[in-house]
Amino acid sequence: MAIDKEELKQKIIEFATKKAKHKSKMYIKDLYKAAPDASPRQVKNAANELVREGKLEFFSSGSTTMYGVPGFGKSEKDQFGELEEE
């Protein structure tokens, strides 16, 4: 089905931002729910474009990759601190 990409991206970012307040990282499957009419591939492509635009970010558990909204959740800095300047 033809879906406008910008519209899809808008839906995904709205969905993700709402979700992120409770759980800052989500799987690609969770993002499918943002636009049930879109195919998994379309959602994936739109989400990855949002990452390139800096509106979403990746988080890696090593074995899986999740999507997050910048500014939500614990940052690497919260968890591990920053390196001291040498």
């Binding site: 990746f58 988080f59 090593g62 990759t65 690497e76 968890q79 001291e84």
Partner: peptide, 28 residues
């Protein structure tokens, strides 16, 4: 060792695994 969620370089969702020492003072 501790795990971190860094994924890598801009726009990529893989290729980097975040790793931190849990005794950084001893081994900076």
């Amino acid at each position: 060792w501790k795990h971190g969620g860094i994924v890598g370089v801009f726009g990529y969702g893989g290729g980097v695994i975040g790793r931190y020492s849990d005794v950084p003072d001893k081994f900076p």
